[in-house]
Amino acid sequence: MHIDLWALALQATNFVILAWLLHRFLYRPVTTVVAQRRALVQKDFEEAQQARHAADVHRRRYEHQITEITAERERVIAEARSHIEVERRDVIEHAQIEARAVIEAQRRALDDEKRQIAEDLGEKAIDLAVALSQKLLSEVSGAAVTAVLLERVCVLLAAVPPERLAERGPVLQVATMPALEDGAKAEWSRRLAPLVGADTELFFMTDESLIAGAELRFPSMVVACSWRDSLIDARASLMVRD
């Protein structure tokens, strides 16, 4: 057993040469390729990282926008709701006022109409009454009527208190309807004289407005007995009844 120094030197040289050759043909190209690939992967990774970052930013912005939009929507809805509420209250109020006005107007119109109708009715009734009485009177002879009237007037005059009668003026106007004939006038004068005093001067006249009746017109007072008055009374009572 011995160590061959030549072989030792040759093997050492061989190893150094092999190391250089492998460095030239194996390590350098392979490490270069690996480094390139690592750089590529690193670049891709960084790009992906950047893309993710950008996406994150986008997402955050969208989330922000969504919250903003939601808040805006809430606000708009609330505003619209309050608007609607106010408007609704206004409309209701207006409608109520209008309705009240309409009701009022209608009621008033109705009342007017009712009154109008009542008046019309009253007038018609009076006209009818007038027409009826005139017709009735026309059928009755004037003398009979005036005789009755004279009796009534006498009764009325007798009922007047004496102190009022004392204040009567010196003139008495006697208005009748229908007109008195001459005989009738003398009868009236004869009957009235004791009641009003002989010194009172009598004037006779006709008044169609009385329809049928007589009025003793003193300067200070009137004693009346006529259908007109009766009709007016009747009408008044009619109106009151309404």
Binding site: Q11, N14, L21, L22
Partner: peptide
């Protein structure tokens, strides 16, 4: 200089390795 068997074998191994590496690294792709 005496050349032993191990030296010759080493030369063969060197040649094989270098040839393999040379042809193996000729078309490297990333």
């Amino acid at each position: 200089v005496p050349v032993g068997l191990e030296v010759v074998t080493t030369w063969v191994i060197m040649v094989v390795l270098v040839v393999l590496c040379y042809f193996g690294t000729r078309k490297l792709s990333v």
